[in-house]
């Protein structure tokens, strides 16, 4: 049973008159990658900064690994590693010196651990160079090594793919998945790259104007949970398009829906592009396809349909609107 490593309870932060975070409550569990999504200025970074001790919350409280951040600061922060905005280090020192300085603050003396994280992020060849000579991607890698060096139970990464090359992004994704799923680390990632988040995260929380609007399972986790619970999955049934009918008349999606019995019309709905969509278990799918074929409605294909994270994001945040 996974435990809540990070608990945010009714967190509020106000800058002047503007509420950057408004009564936000959420938790991040051990062994999961939690994606934190939201438009610019939604309150993602403010929330992360409060968790990492940069900002003080106005109301509410933060608990990390069972320790209250305000009253047990040292114990709470010992559980956290992360990067906020950009990985900032001391440019006059080498990557290794930066890691040593940070490890020292955590009471770590084992140099092997530093070598281990350096290899993990693929920086072993250039770790002795001065940080001021690093590219942004290299800084991200060393920043990640720094965040991991003390084996945190909660890893917080703000835009971690910034500056990384495709190979680096792929490695990061694998690394985070491994950390979460194999080592039980709770990972909280904030990013604007929805496709990347869909591939990386197990759960996402969408925030806008300081308020948490939705928390959903995504990707394999969503599929696994839905399948595991009742076997219900979303399907898209595409009808034969008119251009493929070689001059014969084909029924429209409305006519296909009308051909179904009364009770089925509530389960099935019309989708764009001459298609029907429905969330069904395998038995129901068989029945539906039988009914459609019996009614003489030609089908082109049946797809397992999932709403993309982008659809979810825009529907929750009212996306697509002008940036005002």
């Amino acid at each position: 049973m996974s435990e809540d490593i990070l608990k945010l309870n009714h967190l509020t932060k106000q800058f002047g008159r503007r509420k950057a975070v408004d009564d936000l409550t959420l938790s991040v569990r051990s062994g999961e990658i939690f994606g934190f999504l939201g438009p610019n200025g939604a309150g993602k970074t403010t929330t992360i900064k409060m968790v990492m001790g940069f900002l003080f919350e106005d109301t509410g409280h933060i608990e990390i690994g069972g320790y209250d951040l305000r009253h047990q600061y040292g114990k709470a922060m010992a559980q956290v590693g992360g990067i906020v905005e950009n990985p900032e280090m001391y440019g006059q020192f080498s990557g290794r010196q930066n890691l040593e300085m940070y490890a020292r603050l955590h009471g770590l003396k084992d140099r092997r651990r530093i070598d281990e994280v350096v290899r993990l992020v693929g920086m072993d060849k250039r770790i002795n160079e001065k940080v001021k000579r690093y590219s942004l991607g290299m800084k991200q890698r060393v920043g990640l090594a720094q965040a991991l060096v003390h084996r945190p139970r909660l890893l917080i990464l703000d835009e971690p793919t910034n500056g990384l090359d495709p190979d680096g992004i792929h490695q990061l994704r694998d690394l985070l998945k491994n950390l979460a799923h194999q080592e039980g680390v709770a990972v909280m990632v904030s990013s604007h790259q929805l496709a990347e988040m869909q591939m990386m995260c197990d759960r996402v929380g969408i925030i806008n104007q300081g308020r948490l609007l939705d928390v959903r399972l995504v990707g394999q986790a969503a599929a696994g949970e839905a399948g595991g619970a009742a076997g219900i999955r979303p399907y898209r049934i595409e009808l034969l398009p008119p251009e493929a009918a070689r001059g014969q008349a084909v029924p429209t999606a409305q006519e296909a829906l009308a051909a179904l019995p009364e009770g089925w019309r509530n389960l099935v709905h019309i989708a764009k592009g001459q298609a029907l969509e429905a969330e069904l278990d395998p038995q129901q799918l068989q029945e539906l396809l039988g009914m459609l074929l019996a009614a003489g409605i030609p089908l082109s294909q049946v797809l397992y349909s999932s709403r993309s994270l982008e659809d979810l994001y825009f529907s929750v945040t009212g996306g697509g609107q002008a940036l005002a």
Binding site: M52, G53, F54, Y73, G74, K75, A76, M77, A78, V80, G81, G82, V84, E85, N86, E88, M89, Y90, G91, N98, M101, Y102, L105, H106, Q146
Partner: peptide, 14 residues
């Protein structure tokens, strides 16, 4: 200004 203070704040140190 450089942001390096963050690595200090995020450490378990008051």
């Amino acid at each position: 200004e450089t942001g390096s203070i963050k690595s200090l704040i995020i450490s378990p140190t008051r």
